[in-house]
Amino acid sequence: MVALVLNSIIKLSKSAIKGKASLIIYLVCLALAVFTPLPAAVVVIAAGAAGVIIGRVSGRARQ
């Protein structure tokens, strides 16, 4: 199981983690999931909101 899940993580991360912003979101979410009792759903919603903020900020920077 350990090998299977690790293999899935490596495969999926190639498409899911692209660029610094998504790497930071990944690390923050991982820390929250491992070290805090926050429900996973809260982490997912917060990450979606962070994505929207990052999208807006980078959109403005481009303009």
Binding site: I9, I25, V44, G51, V52, G55
Partner: peptide
């Protein structure tokens, strides 16, 4: 762009949760 941006956050969050499950 709002929908595209939300997925910038959702994809790595999903990966982080799978990594946490791996741990």
């Amino acid at each position: 762009p709002l929908v595209e941006s939300a997925f910038i956050g959702l994809r790595p969050a999903s990966m982080a949760l799978i990594s946490s499950a791996f741990i």
